[in-house]
Structure formats: structure tokens, C-alpha cells
Amino acid sequence: MELARLDFQQLRVKHIAHKSKVRAVLYGGGYSERYFQEDNPVSQWFSTVGSVKYSREAWFPQLYRLHRDFSVLAEELIKMYGSDLIEQAHEGLGELSAVSEIFLHTLSTIERQYPS
């Protein structure tokens, strides 16, 4: 199941990169609607690798839900930032980080279930 570990490592990297992209937008970086709605690398992982290889696993819906929770909160914070509620958007980063930590912890727990 070494391939599963690679899949999970790939998902972890994509999630961290996505979180960095959200943070960058909230600190004045460029916003791409397409990236956040269509080209989000984590969503792409779930719709390709995840749905093909793991959709029947008991953990899949929970991990996907955590990703959706993260994405919805990220979109809310970006909308706040775009509405000049910059301080409130920055305050929301703590909650976003908490959701991210839960996602990453859950992913690590899942990963340990697969033999090396």
C-alpha cells in the first residue's frame, strides 16, 4: 500500500499549499476565482484520485467534509477581505488553521491504517 501513502502525502502537500494560497490572498496576494472554485488542487484530488481509489473507504466522507468545511470558511474569509473587513478576515485565520489541523490530523490517522 505504498501507493496509498504517496496519495496521502500528495493530498497533504496540496492542502498546505492551498492554505498558503488562502493566507496570501488575505494579505493582499492575487485572487483567482477560478482557482478557488474550479482549480483548487485539493478538490481536484478528491474528484480524481480520491473518488477513484478511496470513495468506498469509511473515512472518505469525513475527510471530504473537512475539506469542504475548510473551503467554505476560506471563501467566507476571502469575501470579508474583499468587503474591506480585513481585520475580521485576519482574525478568522485562527479558525481556518484549526480546521486545517483537524484535516491534517485526520489524514495522518488514516495514513497510519495503511501498511507500509
Rank of each mutant, 00 (worst) to 15 (best):
G30V: 11
L107D: 06
Q113W: 10
T48F: 06
K79T: 06
V42W: 02
M1A: 14
I102C: 11
S100E: 09
I78H: 11
V42Q: 05
L3D: 09
Q37F: 08
Q37I: 03
Q88I: 00
S55V: 09
A4T: 13
D39C: 00
G82Q: 11
A24I: 00
F70Y: 11
S43W: 11
G92V: 02
R34Y: 10
F60V: 02
K21N: 08
I86H: 12
S100W: 01
S47R: 15
S108A: 15
L77V: 01
F8I: 07
D39I: 02
K21Y: 11
F46G: 05
Q9T: 10
K21I: 00
D84V: 09
I86E: 15
L96Q: 02
V22Y: 07
R68K: 14
L63N: 01
H90C: 03
Q62L: 13
E75Y: 07
T106V: 09
I102S: 12
F46Q: 06
T109W: 09
E87A: 14
T109M: 12
D84Q: 15
R56Y: 03
S83H: 12
E75I: 06
G82I: 05
L73R: 12
A4G: 03
V42T: 00
Q62R: 15
Y35L: 07
A17W: 01
P115Q: 13
L73A: 07
Q10N: 10
I102A: 12
W45E: 01
W45Q: 05
R112G: 12
E38T: 09
A17G: 08
R65N: 14
K21C: 09
